[in-house]
């Protein structure tokens, strides 16, 4: 199946990436090669009666008692923030 530049642009928007025209060009070719190879290969198999396997372990939710415990200091958590003010992460205005 063909992958177009428009497909790549739409996906980049979903993935929150800005791509240069060169990146779009290269990715269009790479993705088409990789996806066609992968899907042609996998579609050789009839998997109608196979259950998908997300995880090799029988994963289930792990609960714990709801007990208050010492957590991180606010300063420790904010230390890596690109911008901060008054004990909060600083972001551009998101509501009008």
């Amino acid at each position: 199946m063909a992958i177009t530049k428009e497909d790549i642009e739409r996906l980049a928007d979903l993935a929150r990436l800005n791509l240069t025209p060169e990146e779009i060009e290269k990715l269009t070719g790479d993705m088409e090669t990789i996806i066609n190879y992968s899907m042609n290969k996998l579609n050789e198999l009839n998997t109608d009666d196979v259950q998908p396997m997300e995880h090799v372990l029988p994963v289930r939710n792990v609960f714990r008692e709801d007990i208050c415990e010492q957590s991180f200091d606010r300063e420790d958590i904010l230390k890596n923030a690109p911008e901060k003010a008054e004990g909060c992460f600083l972001v551009p205005k998101v509501v009008e």
């Binding site: 790549i8 996906l11 979903l14």
Partner: peptide, 23 residues
């Protein structure tokens, strides 16, 4: 990221991601 976004995007999820999980 682009490959993964493609495999998980609506319309392709079953054909790609779910197929891979079955395999």
């Amino acid at each position: 990221i682009m490959l993964g976004t493609y495999a998980l995007s609506s319309g392709y999820y079953d054909a790609y991601y779910k197929k891979a999980l079955k395999v």
